[in-house]
Simulated scan of single mutants.
Amino acid sequence: MPVAVVTAVDAVLRDAQVASLMLDAAGVICLRYEVQASTSSLRRLVLSAEGVLEHEQVDLDHPCVSCAMREDAVPTLGRLAQIPDVRAIVLAPPLSADPSVVVGTLRPHQGDWHLASAVSVIDVEAAVEDLLGEDTLAERGLQWAVGDARSVGEALAAQIEYAEQLVIDGDPAGPGAELVEHLRAPEQRLLQGPYALGADEALEGRLDHLIALRRRDARYVEPYGGPTEHGTWTLDLHSERPFHPRRLLENIEALGAGRLRERGRFWVPDRPDSICQWDGAGGQVSIGAVWRTGRELPTTHLVVTGVDAADAERVRTAFARSLLTEREWSAGLELWLGTEDHLAPWLGERDVRV
C-alpha cells in the first residue's frame, strides 16, 4: 500500500492538499497528527473523504518526531494497510515536522505499506517572511515541545529541500515563488495550487530517501539560482582555505544575521579532520562538526540566498574576512596544533589526536 508524506507549516494548505488527494481517487485515507506541545501528546486522526474515522489522543514517552512515528505511526500504518477498502494512505505529520526525520524513522518498517513520495505545500504569499523572517515555531504555536527552539524558516526550508514535489499556493510570479525557485533543486517538481497534484502522481512511485537526503547534505550543497525580478539573489561562496576560528566568531553576525537562507560546510585549521555544517535561516545559524574528512583536506563552501540587496555585499565581505589569509594559509597547519580551541562551545571538544 502506498503512503505519501505531506508536510507544511500552514494547516489550511496542508488540509487542502490532503483533501484533494482523498477526493481524487477512491480508497485514499489520511493519517494526520496534531501536536499538543504543552502535554507531550498527539491527536491522531484517521480521515476519509466522508469524514473522521478515528480521533484519539496519543501519549508519548518523549515528545519528538521520531518517537511519534516509531511509537504510533508505524503500528497505525500497519493496521490501516489491512483494511480491505483502503487503497492508499496520506500521512500528514504535525505542522513543522522535518520530513527527513519522519521518513528516516518509517523506512525500516515498510512491509505491507511503502513510502511513495514526499510533498511540501508552501504559501508563496507568506514564503519570504516564513523562510527569512525571525519568527520561531514557538511564537507561531507550531513547536513540537517546549524546548523546540527552531525558527519557522528552519522548519520550512527542511521541508522544501527534502520533498520531491513542491506545491505552491499564491502568485507564481511573485517574490515568494521567486525565493522558492532559488531554493529548489532542478529535479524537484513544482506545481501550482494544492489541486494540481493528482493522487496517481503522489502515490504511484517510490520515495528515494537517499536522493532527498543528498539535497539536504551540506557536503553537496549547490547554488540553484533563479529569477531576480523581485531582487532575490544567491551567492556561491567557496574557498579551499578554512575559516580562522577567532575571526569567524568576530564576523559571524555579519555572515549569518538578516533575512537569509544559508547552507554549506566549512572547516577550521585546528580541526583539519572535521567537516563542519553551516545551516541558517531567519537570522538563526546552527553550526557543528558533523563529518570526518577522508584523505583530502575539506573545503569551505556556503550558498546564501537573500532578498535585500545590501545583505549580499555584507555577507560576501564577512566570508572573505573570516577565511585564513593567503599568508596564513601558506604557513601550513602545524602552527595550529595545540592552539586554543575557540569554537569548542559550538563544535564540541576537539579530538585528542588533532
Rank of each mutant, 00 (worst) to 15 (best):
T76H: 11
P63E: 07
L80S: 10
C64N: 11
L80G: 15
H62Y: 10
C64Q: 10
P84T: 09
D59L: 01
L80N: 12
R79C: 08
T76P: 13
E56R: 03
L80Q: 14
G78S: 12
T76M: 09
D72V: 13
D85Q: 07
A81R: 00
C64V: 09
P63R: 06
V74N: 02
A68G: 10
E54N: 12
D61A: 04
Q57A: 13
M69G: 10
L77N: 05
P84L: 07
P63V: 02
L60Q: 00
L60V: 00
Q82H: 11
V65C: 07
D59G: 04
P75C: 14
L77D: 03
D72R: 07
Q57K: 14
V65Y: 01
P75Q: 09
D85S: 12
E56Y: 01
L77V: 01
E54H: 15
A68P: 11
T76L: 14
C67Q: 14
H55T: 14
D85K: 06
S66G: 04
R70N: 10
H55D: 11
R70F: 09
T76D: 12
S66A: 06
P75L: 06
V65D: 09
P75R: 12
E71T: 06
L80W: 06
R79W: 04
A81S: 08
D61R: 05
R79N: 08
A68I: 00
A81L: 01
R79T: 09
T76R: 09
V74E: 00
A68Q: 04
R70V: 07
D59A: 02
A81D: 05
H62M: 14
A73M: 03
S66Q: 03
C67T: 11
H55G: 10
A68M: 07
E56I: 01
S66R: 03
R79H: 05
D61L: 03
M69E: 12
T76Q: 15
P84E: 09
E56T: 06
E71V: 02
H55K: 10
Q82R: 13
M69L: 13
R70S: 12
T76F: 05
A81V: 01
L80V: 07
A81P: 07
M69Y: 08
H62P: 15
S66V: 03
V65T: 04
V58M: 08
H55F: 01
D85H: 07
V58P: 08
E71H: 03
P84M: 10
H55P: 12
R70A: 15
V74R: 01
P84F: 02
A73N: 06
H55Y: 05
S66D: 05
V58C: 08
P75Y: 07
D59N: 04
H62K: 10
V65L: 04
L60I: 00
M69D: 12
Q57W: 14
V65G: 03
V65R: 04
E54D: 15
L80F: 02
L80P: 11
E54A: 11
E56W: 00
I83P: 13
E56D: 03
M69F: 09
A73D: 04
C67Y: 10
V74D: 02
L60T: 00
R70H: 15
Q57D: 15
C67N: 14
C64W: 03
D85G: 06
M69C: 15
E71L: 02
L80D: 11
S66T: 04
M69Q: 12
V58N: 06
L77C: 02
Q57C: 13
I83W: 11
C64I: 03
V74H: 00
